Amino acid sequence: MSDPNASEPTVELIPRHTAATLPDHGSDQPDGDQPDNRPQVWSDVEELLRAGSGTTWLSVGRSAGGVHTRPVFAAWTGDAFVFASNGSTAKSAHLDADGRGSLAIDLSSVHLVVEGRADRLVTPAGLENASAALLEVYGWPTTVIGDVVDAPYGAPTSGGPPYRLYRFTPARAFAFPTADQFEPTRFRF
């Protein structure tokens, strides 16, 4: 489902504080073991995303204040994430009111935080593409019916079908290493 026309995001290192910039706390690196200032490569992140992620958490603002956070299966399409939500859930209500939010994704070797906006998919082409991405990445079969999808099963806490599909378009992403294999990296889309 990767989009060959999608442009690569700009990449920048996120500076770490070192012993020289922190007051007397020392470095969190063992002596002589400093990272090599190499940024994470977006194509490596995409490869991990296409293989399916570990836990992905969606956080969106509540109209009354605070943050609403729930797990989702977010499939990467090459330029955005897609995920499903039952229309009667608080998650769908918050997304429909203001789609700004973030995804926190555990990719084992990379912890990824993506900031962006979710918009409900309602066109036949958008729904079919999202349905295909969910099948490709997670093996989850869905069938488009009008402006929602049906499925033979879903997460136990999902509320069951039918599901609305959302497209989460990234604005920025942050990749954090799990073992100093690269420097913390910011991507701008």
Score class of each variant (00 low, 15 high):
Arg50Tyr: 05
Thr69Lys: 07
Val72Phe: 08
Gln34Ala: 08
Asp36His: 15
Gly54Tyr: 07
Ser108Pro: 00
Leu112Asn: 08
Ser85Cys: 14
Asp106Gly: 03
Ser63Asp: 13
Asp28Gln: 14
Val82Arg: 01
Ala90Asn: 13
Val113Phe: 09
Ala104Leu: 15
Asp119Thr: 14
Leu112Ile: 06
Phe81Cys: 00
Thr56Glu: 03
Gly65Val: 04
Asp36Asn: 12
Gly54Leu: 02
Ser27Pro: 01
Thr69Tyr: 02
Leu95Arg: 09
His94Asp: 15
Asp36Leu: 13
Gln34Asn: 04
Glu47Phe: 03
Thr21His: 10
Ala104Met: 14
Val60His: 13
Ala133Gly: 08
Gly66Arg: 09
Leu121Val: 07
Arg100His: 15
Arg62Trp: 01
Ala97Glu: 14
Val45Ile: 11
Asn37Asp: 15
Pro39Asp: 14
Ile105Ser: 06
Glu115His: 15
Pro39Asn: 10
Ser108Ile: 07
Ala74Lys: 09
Glu46Asn: 01
Gly54Ala: 04
Asp79Arg: 04
Gly99Thr: 02
Ala133Ile: 11
Thr89Glu: 05
Asp98Gln: 13
Ala51Gln: 10
Leu107Tyr: 04
Ser43His: 12
Leu134Thr: 01
Trp57Lys: 05
Trp76Met: 00
Leu135Ser: 10
Trp140Gln: 04
Asp79Ile: 02
Ala93Glu: 08
Val110Met: 08
Ala130Glu: 12
Leu127Ile: 00
Ala104Gln: 13
Pro141Lys: 13
Gln29Tyr: 15
Leu95Met: 09
Gly78Asn: 04
His68Phe: 07
Asp106Lys: 11
Arg62Thr: 09
Gln40Ala: 13
Ser27Ala: 11
Ala90Thr: 15
Pro39Thr: 08
Tyr138His: 07
Arg120Glu: 09
Ser59Asn: 05
Asp96Asn: 12
Arg70Thr: 06
Asp44Glu: 14
Pro141Arg: 14
Ser27Asn: 12
